[in-house]
Structure formats: structure tokens, C-alpha cells
Amino acid sequence: MLTIDNLDVWFGDPPDRVDAVKNAAFSVAKGESFGLVGESGSGKSTILRAVAGLIDSWSGRIDVDGRPVHARRRDRAFYKTVQMVFQDPYASLHPRHSVDTVLSEALGLQGMGDIDRRITKLLEDVGLGKGFRFRYPHQLSGGQRQRVAIARALAAEPRLLLLDEPTSALDVSVQAEILNLLVDLRAEHGLTYVMVSHDLAVVGHICDRLAVMQHGRIVEIMSVEALRKGEGTQEYTRHLITASA
């Protein structure tokens, strides 16, 4: 579903150029759930944003669904395949747009008809009732906002969902709800996930495999079983595991 090879991402121009990701490579199979873990500044979110087309300054290869993506321009077919859920549900919803506006815009942009029925369906899918349709973000809790953000991402009926720390801004009990929702949605819609998180337990819950990143490089790629047993081959991985236990 997603193949990344030799990916470099940088910000700024020389001499101030900062290399955020260096020589990253991994691939995610259809239906798989892949985690990217690391500490802040390790470049994990940057990879996600480069895949989504939110960062232009990258080189290397990003293949989505077997086809290389264009460095700058993404077409509608791309957005129908790949969608993203952001970290902070307080920043990822437009403060002046109601849930209805957000979802109808997303559906409209994908050229979908029958918007009324689809909005109801989307809200049900993410566990919000019809009653939430005309609310504004300030009338929603953090967890509800994140559900709306997930509904928006699902509007395009994508196959690859990029999750950028989707629960780190939420309370633990709400985190559990959202994680369950993500697990259910993957099963129902046959989605592929790439999830960024600093929380190994969350990645362990959602993902099958993961890549550990440090200073912009992928240190190692391992399975979640190995993670559970604490079997990092690299010193840094083992350090992370002990620190978060």
C-alpha cells in the first residue's frame, strides 16, 4: 500500500537547512497497521506529512498503492486513497465551521452525492449520533472532536489512513474509546494505518509492526511481538522500552 525508499526530508535552504528525515525506508502492506515511534524531533511526524503532501521539500521515493506520488502536486485520486488524522483535535477543526459544514465540504470535494445520508452514516460510524451534526467545535469535547476529525478523514473513503498521534491530546479513558474506534474502523473498512506515536503502548495496541526513529533516522523496524518481549536489537530501542515501561 505504501512504500518509502531513500526518503530525505528537509526544511529551509542551505546554509540553514535542517535535515528532518534522513534516508528513511519502509513499506506497509495492504491492510497492515504500521507504527512510527520516537521522541519529539525524531522526524516521525515529518514522514507522515511528506507522504500526505503537506511538505514539498523531500527527495527519494514514496509509492502509494504501487504508484509513485508527485513531489508537489497530488491529484484527487490521491486524496481519495490517503487521508490523515491530526494530533490536536483542538487545532484540526476550523473554529467557525460546524460538524455539518466540515463533513459536507469533505464529501462535496470528493464529488459524492447524497450528502445528507452520508453525513448521518459517517457520524454513526465514528460513534456520534445525528444530534452532533450541527454543533460547532466549541460545543464538543476533545474526544468528540477527534471523532469528527476521523469522520472527515473517512468521508473520502480512503484506504490508507495516516494517524499523527491521534490520542496524545486526550484523556486516557477517551484515548481508550478512540483506540477502540480505530481498531473497529480498520476491521470494517479494511483500512491500512500508518500511526505516529511517542507512546509505545498505544502503538503496541494498534499496530502490527513498527519503526523506531531517532534523530531523523529509522533505527530499527520490528514486530509488535518483539516489542512486547522487549527485544530491541538496538540500544536506543531498549532504552525507549525501559523508559516507557
Partner: peptide
């Protein structure tokens, strides 16, 4: 109790997390 059990744990994987 709910707070404690709703945390995902590496050493005790579950299919679904108990929701508070």
C-alpha cells in the same frame, strides 16, 4: 479502576480496551 484498565499495556495485550 476504570482509569487503570483503560490504559493499553505492552505486557498485557487485549483486543479491545475496556471503556470507562
Amino acid at each position: 479502576q476504570g482509569l487503570l484498565s483503560s490504559l493499553p499495556r505492552l505486557d498485557a495485550p487485549v483486543k479491545r480496551l475496556p471503556v470507562l
